[in-house]
Write a protein that binds this DNA or RNA. Sequence first.
DNA 1: TTGTCGATTGAG
DNA 2: TCAATCGACAAT
Length: 215
Amino acid sequence: MPLDRGALSGPAPEVAPLLLGAHMASTVARSQVVVRITEVEAYEGALDPASHAYRGPTKRNAVMFSEAGHLYCYFVYGMHWCANVVCGVDGVASAVLLRAGEVLQGEEWVRTRSTAAVKSSALAGGPARLARALGLDGRHSGLDLLDESSPVRLLRLGEQADRAEFRTGPRVGVAAAADIPWRFWLPGEPSVSAYRVGGRKRATGGASAGGTRQT
DNA sequence: TTGTCGATTGAG
DNA sequence: TCAATCGACAAT
């Protein structure tokens, strides 16, 4: 199936697996970086308490309500940017968070953007590192990823992942709606996140029922 | 206007 | 295990 706007115009949980194995190509800041997407999470608007758009449109999340195929970047924890692909129909908030990827091209560019010396497999492992690998921040939010002239593009250079080839599970770091299995990943990929239970630790000393999990 | 908290990461 | 660090949003 081609990765056109029509394919992206469905609910986020249905679009998310289509993005596995697809590619993000960035020419931001004259770099040439290509990342193969290995892990994503779906976020719906009004029905999803974990979504930025749960409480309706705001200045920050306005892009989530736009036409499918656009890029939504947001700032978290005072230092990190994360990148989403907007999906669904125009006017309805829906997006897929890009959580991890494999750097196929431009590793030297990515390393100049990295602060720590990390393994190649971890250069785009984690949503903030993936966004940083591609050089993305708030300036790029709203870009049309399907426009050939865009500095950031969503492509499919190879075959689409087969239904049987991906796994699903609860979203990482999400406290609300933790029972919904809207994380999708390709098994066996070293860039895929270890699972972390959502929710903030409290001063009352609540036990973290956490741990890590993979595959 | 103020205070709280977050779709995270990296160091200790 | 926890600090870093700041924008968005809910509560004054």
